[in-house]
Design a binder for these strands. Structure first.
Ligand SMILES: NC(=O)c1ccc[n+]([C@@H]2O[C@H](COP(=O)([O-])OP(=O)(O)OC[C@H]3O[C@@H](n4cnc5c(N)ncnc54)[C@H](O)[C@@H]3O)[C@@H](O)[C@H]2O)c1
Ligand SMILES: NC(=O)c1ccc[n+]([C@@H]2O[C@H](COP(=O)([O-])OP(=O)(O)OC[C@H]3O[C@@H](n4cnc5c(N)ncnc54)[C@H](O)[C@@H]3O)[C@@H](O)[C@H]2O)c1
Lengths: 256, 256
DNA sequence: CGCGATTTGTGCACGTCTTCACAAGCGCCT
DNA sequence: AGGCGCTTGTGAAGACGTGCACAAATCGCG
């Protein structure tokens, strides 16, 4: 469709929008590619094939090529992708060419771990502030940073240009904290509290919920266990369902 | 091979009802519904409409109805869903009727936070073992549990029927730990280390990577900034991609 | 007892994502 | 230079997921 630019061709810059809207699924995989690429770069690789990179990132190679093709062609047929160039490409698209400031709200059990995590710094982020509501926690020093009171958020936001807010408070406080973050202009939130946040349009929220992950795994355990059970019973023992109801006829195909 | 034990269900081992194979997307949402339902139950609600529950879970109501219909019809037209019954239903499907034992490997920064997290217990899981490779950490007591050496994993697995392994070690050790977990019969792994694990067929791995979440948010920040920045310009910093030249310099002030 | 209000369950159409398969492009070797 | 093997980029097809819109079912009430 339309003209496509050749990687080596000089002077064709400017004809194409810098940030095409990538499919969400692609965006979600780019960080994985980036991590794999950094590994490859550290081990001295100059180029990598889609097959090799796909392997390192744990995805299908056709998918990887299609993903990369979304951000413009940067591979060389017969050779592969230039590792360093691709890193710059992806970092640019992800907006990592500037180190983004993160405000961490809720310095409890989990917050301590996050504050001490060096994976922030090495992957393009900088913890710019630690905030908590507990007066007993305010003033505490963690990893060279002092915990400030959450009500200082407006002042903190004025000092630093906070790009992302991380919520690690109990669920009961999360919505309030989110509101405070939004109020000072934060438009991206990572939420560790197990609850739904409601935010205005234009604000992105992503959620990490450990229990959900475990429960998904639990489902698959359950399913695997039911498969190992003898198939000969054929829909007999559906008694375990509480409430006096049974799942009996949900899928005809399963029965004998 | 791992014989599956049902604690408290003697003589009936293997009599597991067949599970309809739910779409993955549905499975991933069930825990969210479950959490919302527990909230509703605590606030005294006996029934809930698909609209109400969808709201509480942050999803579309048609999607919710379709999800619930996958596990058999348990709503009453004109009324809604029985909260308590639906909770039992979902917990059954997710395999939460038995409390699953979790082994946590890597009791460092993050591992400590996880070990002290009460969200495990309240959502159907039980930390059955804390394991670490550092002799200096072995013997330490956290939250009433003693850290044991990771080489004791086989013994631990023999004592408890470990359903899920959680990896919170550095990435460099993660694959080795995964192998050890698989070797003792664990078929579900939650991995916090930023790396791809390779495991045999039949073993499920889910990954939680904080940096990936932040980078996805960063992308959207970048995109939002580029939308507000230039409605009509063609040659500003945003078009600096092509040509394979350094992209880095052209990025100084995207924020604000 | 019937009727209207309410809410579920689902057929259908649409959009997104994945995967295969292969032509086109590239470098290397002869 | 030309051919050969390797790799990318992408068309097409199908799988999967989503949301609308509405018939069917149920309840409450007069
Ligand atoms: N600990 C874990 O491993 C873990 C794992 C997954 C999810 N979570 C979730 O993360 C959140 C935090 O967990 P935790 O174990 O660290 O809890 P915690 O109680 O140890 O820490 C919560 C912190 O938030 C602070 N806080 C409370 N209200 C606040 C407010 N309005 N503004 C600012 N700070 C406030 C508290 O003072 C406390 O320091 C919880 O929602 C929990 O469910 C925790
Ligand atoms: N700290 C965070 O907030 C955070 C957030 C996201 C991801 N992570 C990831 O989680 C992992 C752990 O992070 P951390 O900050 O707790 O690191 P850490 O270094 O504090 O802890 C790692 C622990 O693993 C133990 N360990 C090392 N090799 C082991 C082995 N072979 N078997 C058993 N235990 C072993 C170490 O002794 C140490 O106690 C890392 O991969 C990190 O990237 C951490």
């Amino acid at each position: 469709m339309s003209q496509h630019r050749h990687p080596g061709a000089p002077g064709r810059a400017g004809a194409v929008p810098a940030l095409p809207d990538l499919p969400e699924a692609t965006v979600a995989r780019l960080p994985e590619y980036l991590r794999a690429l950094h590994n490859l770069a550290e081990t001295g690789n100059e180029t990598v094939s889609s097959e090799g990179l796909a392997n390192a990132a744990g995805v299908n190679s056709a998918k990887l090529r299609k993903d990369l093709s979304q951000l413009g062609s940067y591979g060389t047929r017969g050779v592969g992708y230039d590792v360093a160039l691709l890193i710059e490409q992806i970092e640019y698209v992800l907006g990592l060419t500037q180190r983004r400031a993160v405000a961490l709200v809720g310095v409890g059990n989990l917050g301590h771990a996050l504050a001490g995590y060096d994976g922030f710094a090495s992957r393009g982020f900088r913890i710019a502030a630690l905030l908590d509501a507990d007066p007993g926690r305010v003033g505490e020093e963690i990893n060279g940073m002092v915990v400030r009171h959450v009500d200082e958020l407006p002042r903190v936001a004025a000092e630093e240009s906070i790009a992302i807010g991380v919520i690690a408070t109990p669920a009961s406080a999360a919505q309030r904290v989110a509101d405070q973050l939004v109020a000072v202009g934060v438009t991206s939130i990572l939420n560790f509290a197990p609850c739904v946040l409601s935010v205005p349009d234009g604000v992105d929220v992503r959620k990490v919920d450990l229990a959900i992950e475990l429960q998904i795994l639990s489902f698959h355990e359950h399913r695997k266990a039911s498969l190992t059970a003898l198939p000969s019973t054929g829909g007999s023992a559906l008694t375990a369902l509480p409430g006096g109801l049974a799942v009996t006829e949900s899928q005809e195909a399963i029965g004998t």
